[in-house]
Nucleic acid binder design. Structure first.
Length: 1022
RNA sequence: GGGCGGUUAGCUCAGCUGGUAGAGCGCUUCGUUUACACCGAAGAUGUCGGGGGUUCGAAUCCCUCACCGCCCACCA
């Protein structure tokens, strides 16, 4: 055997062997009837896996390997996610970077083909990475969210929910991403605090009306009284003023009571076509904020939309899909002018009619931010900005510090009455931190937009999902995440599932025309009128079915003739198809579904649903979901909703284990832009998969949010592997190997009895830790047992025995060591599968690979006497070593040991373990005597003293100091315990065993102190 | 504004249901004795964030404050 494990060579070889032998297949190594199933959180096919994936998959693999060894019918279901928007973004970026035709230039079909190429490439990378990591997924079942089977499941779910009324189309305000030109869900919006401004503008009252504006302080005294011909509003988004439908004030706000119900003018655009909007009351405005009056822009603000809904205020969409002001000007808003124009016909030119559309000519096509500047400029130039003194504390706008577009001096500055120079009054612009919504992928500011979208009635689906966690059917580990889950589900909003993208599952809805017939139409198809203003939806899992539905629907219009149903590419071609054809053209909804819609089905779609497959029957519900907290809402909650709904109320998993987020050595979130990402493949290349896995597992603490990952921790993992490797090397050199059965060997020597017990203890500990998903504890238990117990002590103890004369003892020790080592390999295998498998195969010829070995369950094989005896031996050796080091006894020098105060037990212990003790403590002789030899150094060990005659080397002063220190410690301890035992309250209230323990400790401390005192006295006599 | 984590040895962190403060790394001193220098032996280092409380007893339970971090939230 080499001195170290060659991970680079061995790991791929071992993995290939496992794979070739079908070790990962569902049910492999099954020895019991119950199943254990984990579905992988499918990685996005956007690129490669990061260290967070490495953690997530290591934890899953640990559980899966462990359960498989326990004999469960185990399946780890692998797969990847098409990740709609993210993948489309990756491909679009790549097209741009390589100067290839853009998405639009390619067209939908070509582009989607191109994304499939990306999928193939990325999937290959990802699966390769998972294999390098050692993941024991059943690759024969590898899935993809857009595979034919899973797509069928998606369509069925959509159609079923549609038919149940749980999916519907609605015109609602949604989060619109102007970069990707699609709607996104609430969850895909990140609210980030940014520097913003709030402008204060005057909306003049219609017809020059005036009112007395009165402000009062808390005591009711008037602090301001003036006649106003306007209402002052504050806004952070002046460009949306054009879409205002009203100005709202709080019903209790006395300042504006006189003008509620009146009209005011939006001060933007050509004066002759400015819109008048009503001043209304609503509970939404906060009288203490701003001016207390809020402009209501129902189509571009969620709060305003609420007000608009309540007050029946019109909503005007101002922008196009890119967030630019509508080039078409939008709808007519001046109904009177429009009517006049129609009546007048030729009296008004097309341009003139155009001029009264909602977006004025000079703003059309402008980006929303450019439009904002123009609007501000226009209002300010007109003198309708609220002006304040330049030294007003709330005015942050100052020369040289304002945003560039505001610093151009566009504001009309009214000179001060005292005649001083300079801008004494300024437009009121408050600098303000505002929460701005950004697209989580696009990183651009999200625009609330009024559009037609598909929604899932999440509220209905959420109720059973809530109940399942409330009643413990599904549990979170750690449990505190349940609160997060509840908070979100309890206040869940309709889920917008349609995306205006190309990569994804296309909405299974086909639209037909809205037919209007007159009396004769049923016999004369030529007289049917149609349009697509209100298209008729046909929701079905295929065009064929949709066409059948359509045929039924439209047949009434065609008399006895069955209308022919055509599939058109889009609405435009559908309209074209109709001309001159005796039939109906349908076109499919071009939108695709939110990627999480298909991910939500993952636990059952991957098992074959909607077919009733044996796998579905066998493995659903699955057992544990291992995932990060960042997708509890996106994914976990939605799997719960869909799983319960479609699987007869059965939850998708009984446990959700929330793993940590991996951060760098400084605690910073890893990101490509920071350049602090740890590539799992690089770590594996450098240190091996086992080392990487160990580092991750040993630092995964349940309930902790972050896991700091560094090369140093992986080094530790590698060192541990090497340690194990060398222990095995020692065993091999000493022929302490053989393919034993699984039965525990017979032991007669205390040291062998002891290691059997230690092994059983470690096994129980690792099993318990894994049962509780305490990965760090499992890893640490393995580490301590392998390194500190097996290597540091047992191997050392075994050396004199294996090199001794007693053949029977030799044989027994070999057997025990071989067995104990095998158990180490078994225990460690889930965490470090490669090195353990390699050793398993190297040490002996075996029928099964280690990964199919049986996870042991030992009864009471620990021997209390052996434990006590070896504990004593270890303490003795440590004590001697410690003294030797302190007394500077040369390492090579062999000294003598004389035990005093030893009873039969201690004498017997010494006799039984003399070889080990003498060797490890480097003793010449060891014996029991009545009195300590002259000039001895004394170590107190409970009831007896270990005396080392070091007359030649002893430094009396140093030894006195050492003993005094030990004495002080013992006396301090004794004192503390005495105090405790003298406390009446303690004696009365503490449990008996605790009191007993304290008494034992006291007597031990007292006896130790006595022996130390005796040793000091002897020393004083020298 | 609400919620959730964290604050323990120089560094990174364990410490589960209250009962003798631990590990890894780093540091110091030894050391090549039939596995291992990716090693072995021996060491040093802690008012367990501050303040209160409950208790016979608190790193651990409760309250409160401070700081760091995350998540959710509609103040124009």
């Amino acid at each position: 055997m080499d001195k170290t494990f060659n991970a680079e060579e061995a790991e791929p070889r071992i993995y290939a062997k496992w794979e070739d032998e079908g070790c990962f297949a569902a049910g492999a190594n099954k020895s019991r009837d119950d199943a254990f199933c984990i579905v992988i959180p499918p990685p996005n096919v956007t690129g490669s896996l990061h260290i967070g994936h490495a953690l997530n998959n290591t934890l899953q693999d640990i559980l899966v390997r462990w359960k498989r060894m326990q004999g469960f019918d185990t399946l780890w279901q692998p797969g990847t996610d098409h990740a709609g928007i993210a993948t489309q973004m990756v491909v679009e970026r790549e097209l741009a970077e390589t100067q290839q035709p853009s998405r639009a230039a390619m067209g939908r079909e070509k582009f989607v083909e191109r994304v499939w190429e990306q999928k193939e490439k990325s999937e290959g990378t990802i699966l390769g990475q998972l294999k390098r990591l050692g993941c024991s997924c059943d690759w024969s079942r590898n899935e993809f969210t857009m595979s034919p089977n899973l797509s069928a499941a998606v369509l069925k779910v959509f159609v079923d929910l549609y038919n149940q009324g749980l999916i519907y189309k609605d015109k609602r305000l949604v989060n619109w991403d102007p970069k990707f030109e699609t709607a996104i869900s609430d969850l895909e919006v990140e609210n980030i605090e940014t520097d913003g401004h709030m402008w204060h503008f005057k909306y003049p009252l219609a017809g020059g009306a005036t009112y007395e504006y009165v402000e009062k302080d808390e005591g009711g005294d008037v602090t301001l009284l003036e006649t106003r011909d306007y209402i002052s509003i504050a806004t952070t988004r002046p460009e949306t003023m054009l879409g205002d439908g009203a100005v709202a004030v709080h019903p209790s706000d006395e300042r504006y009571a006189p003008i509620v119900g009146q009209l005011c003018e939006i001060p933007v655009g050509p004066k002759e076509h400015r819109r008048l909007i009503p001043i209304i009351t609503d509970d939404y405005p906060d009288p203490d904020f701003g001016s207390g009056a809020v402009k209501i822009t129902g189509a571009h603000d969620f709060n305003d939309n609420g007000v608009a809904q309540r007050g029946n205020i019109p909503c005007y969409r101002l922008m196009d899909t890119k967030g630019a002001m509508r080039a078409d000007g939008g709808p007519y808003v001046d109904e009177a002018a429009k009517a006049q124009a129609i009546i007048d016909g030729a009296e008004m030119t097309a341009n003139e009619i155009d001029a009264i559309n909602i977006v004025p000519d000079d703003l059309r096509g402008l980006d929303r931010y450019e439009a904002r500047k123009r609007v501000i400029d226009q209002i300010t130039a007109e003198g309708l900005a609220v002006m304040v003194p330049a030294d007003h504390p709330e005015v942050a706008w100052m020369k040289g510090t304002a945003p560039e577009w505001n610093a151009l001096g566009r504001a009309k500055i009214t000179p001060l009455e005292d005649g001083t120079d300079g801008p004494a009054v300024l437009p009121m612009v408050e600098s303000k931190k505002i929460m701005q919504p950004f697209g989580d992928r696009s990183k651009v500011v999200i625009e609330p937009m009024l559009t037609d979208q598909w929604f899932v009635d999440a509220k209905t689906l959420a109720q059973p999902a809530l109940e399942a966690v409330r009643n413990g059917t599904t549990k979170f580990a750690p449990q505190n995440w349940e609160k997060t889950y509840f908070n979100w589900l309890e206040d869940i909003q309709p889920w917008c599932i349609s995306r205006q993208l190309w990569w994804g599952h296309q909405v299974p809805v086909w639209y037909g025309p809205d037919l209007i017939t007159d009396d004769d139409a049923s016999t004369n198809a030529d007289r049917i009128e149609w349009d697509f203003k209100q298209p008729v939806p046909f929701c079905a899992t295929s065009f064929k079915e949709a066409a059948a539905d359509a045929r039924r629907y439209y047949s009434g219009y065609f008399g006895n003739a069955q209308p022919k149903i055509f599939l058109a590419e889009d609405q435009t071609s559908a309209e074209a198809e109709h001309r001159g054809v005796r039939g109906i053209a349908l076109y499919r909804d071009p939108d695709v579904l939110d990627t999480w819609f298909s991910s939500a089905l993952w636990p059952f779609s991957t098992l074959g649903w909607p077919d009733k497959t044996p796998e579905l029957d066998r493995y659903y519900k699955t057992d544990v979901l291992v995932t990060g907290f960042d997708i509890i809402f996106f994914w976990v909650a939605r799997m719960m909703m869909q799983g319960i709904h479609f699987m007869d109320g059965e939850v998708p998993f009984h446990t959700v284990y929330i793993n940590s987020i991996v951060v760098d050595g400084k605690g910073q979130k890893m990101s490509k832009s920071k350049g602090n990402v740890l590539d799992p493949l690089e770590l594996i290349d450098q240190y091996g998969a086992d080392a990487t896995r160990y580092a991750l597992a040993s630092q995964e603490v349940q309930g902790r949010r972050t896991l700091r990952m560094s090369n140093q921790s992986v080094e530790g993992g590698r060192n541990f592997g090497t340690k194990l490797w060398n222990a095995a090397r020692f065993a091999e050199m000493n022929e302490a190997y053989s393919a034993h059965g699984e039965s525990v060997p017979e032991a007669t020597a205390t040291v062998n009895k002891w290691i059997l017990g230690e092994t059983a203890r470690a096994t129980a500990e690792v099993t318990r830790a894994l049962d509780e998903y305490r990965f760090n504890e499992a890893a640490t238990a393995c580490y301590d047992h392998v390194w500190k117990v097996f290597c540091d002590w047992y191997v050392e103890f075994a050396k004199p025995l294996l090199g001794g004369e007693d053949e029977a003892l030799k044989t027994e020790t070999r057997a025990c060591m071989a067995w104990a080592l095998d158990q180490c390999l078994i225990l460690l295998h889930p965490i470090m599968p490669f090195v353990t498998e390699e050793l398993w195969g190297t040490l002996a010829q075996r029928q099964n690979p280690l990964m199919h070995a049986t996870w042991p369950e030992f009864g009471a094989i620990a021997d209390a006497d052996a434990d006590a005896e070896m504990g004593w031996v270890i303490k003795l050796i440590e004590g001697i070593r410690s003294v030797r080091a302190e007394m500077n006894v040369p390492a090579g020098a062999k000294i003598d040991l004389v035990l005093t105060g030893a009873g039969d037990t201690v004498s017997a212990r010494l006799d039984r373990n003399r070889a080990l003790i003498e060797r490890l403590a480097r003793l010449e002789t060891s014996a029991v005597a009545d009195a300590a030899p002259e000039g001895s150094v004394t170590i107190v060990l409970g009831d007896c003293s270990a005396n080392l005659p070091l007359a030649g080397v002893i430094d009396v002063t140093a030894e006195k100091a050492r003993l005094s220190k030990a004495l002080a410690k013992a006396e301090k301890e004794a004192g503390g315990i005495e105090k405790k035992l003298g406390n009446q309250g303690f004696l009365e209230k503490a449990p008996e065993e605790v009191i007993e323990e304290q008494r034992d400790r006291l007597s031990a401390a007292q006896s130790e102190a006595a022996r130390l005192n005796a040793a000091l006295e002897r020393l004083a006599a020298m």
